[in-house]
């Protein structure tokens, strides 16, 4: 039993400044909503994302090289869009932000029939692994684009755009390979990490991916803003607003 009457008043500072509950879902709606609107504008109102040896991530792979010229970005963006829409981290964010289901922990919800992810269309989130497989293919194209971003008509070079594209693909790689489905694929599905020689290798991979996975939410946000920044930069180059400085 404490002896409150004989001790001085509390001296400890409160544990940090706590934001109101509505800040996080509101920030999610603003950030994802803004990115969504920007994406619609970029995808449906532009026919190219190429500036010299730079290619916007919205337009990679470059389907115009394969003879597809009708809204070329549409053929590309559905993969990262569905990968992110079914991502376990983004699910948390949009269920809270857009569906208020719940808006924040222990907040009251509107009364209605709740089915979670047991019914169409939300049950399709269970197919996240297939979106991962396709996202890995897109990542390979993005790495190819990034290598090409360092090859100028006069040979190897480094422009500001090259570095921005490199940063973007690194962030996207961390986001893609820190995915929960990838973690399961490389070793999480095993019950025993020592029973077979191959399982030992998979344990090493699983441990590495688990370390990345603990920051999956951060990778999700940073990589999204990375894509946004890269596309804006290349769009400004295309429209002549910016000049790309060559560093080497």
């Amino acid at each position: 039993m404490a002896t409150p009457a004989t001790v001085p008043a509390p001296q400890r500072a409160p544990k940090g400044w706590k934001l109101p509950w509505w800040v996080e879902p509101t920030a999610t709606v603003v950030a994802l909503g803004s990115f969504g609107l920007y994406s619609i504008w970029e995808v449906f109102f532009h026919t190219t994302g190429r500036f010299g040896n730079y290619l916007s991530p919205f337009f990679s792979p470059d389907v115009t090289a394969w003879g597809i010229h009708v809204i070329p970005a549409v053929w590309v963006v559905w993969v990262p869009l569905l990968f992110r829409a079914s991502c376990y981290y983004y699910r948390k964010e949009y269920y809270r932000g857009f569906f208020a289901d719940p808006a924040a922990c222990a907040r009251p919800e509107r009364s209605r029939v709740y089915r979670g992810e047991t019914r169409f269309p939300l049950s399709l989130n269970n197919l996240h692994r297939f979106m991962l497989y396709l996202a890995i293919v897109v990542i390979l194209f993005l790495w190819d684009d990034t290598v090409r971003a360092f090859i100028f008509p006069n040979g190897f070079g480094v422009g500001l755009g090259s570095l921005i594209m490199l940063g973007n693909v690194i962030l996207l790689s961390y986001y893609t390979f820190s995915c929960h489905a990838f973690r399961h694929l490389v070793g999480g599905g095993l019950d025993c990490f020592t029973c077979r020689a191959r399982a030992v290798t998979r344990y090493g991979l699983w441990s590495r991916v688990s370390a990345w996975n603990s920051h999956h939410g951060q990778w999700a946000w940073i990589s999204m803003f990375g894509v946004w920044a890269t596309d804006v930069y290349i769009r400004l180059l295309i429209s002549g607003v910016l000049h790309d400085p060559r560093l080497i």
């Binding site: 948390k92 809270r96 289901d101 922990c105 089915r115 979670g116 992810e117 929960h180 999480g188």
Partner: peptide, 26 residues
Amino acid sequence: GFCNITKCCQEVCPEHIHITDNAIIP
């Protein structure tokens, strides 16, 4: 399937168990 992984369980766990990331999602 009723869990929509909003991670509140993980946030309140006094033992800091990664309930969603290490149990529910796997």
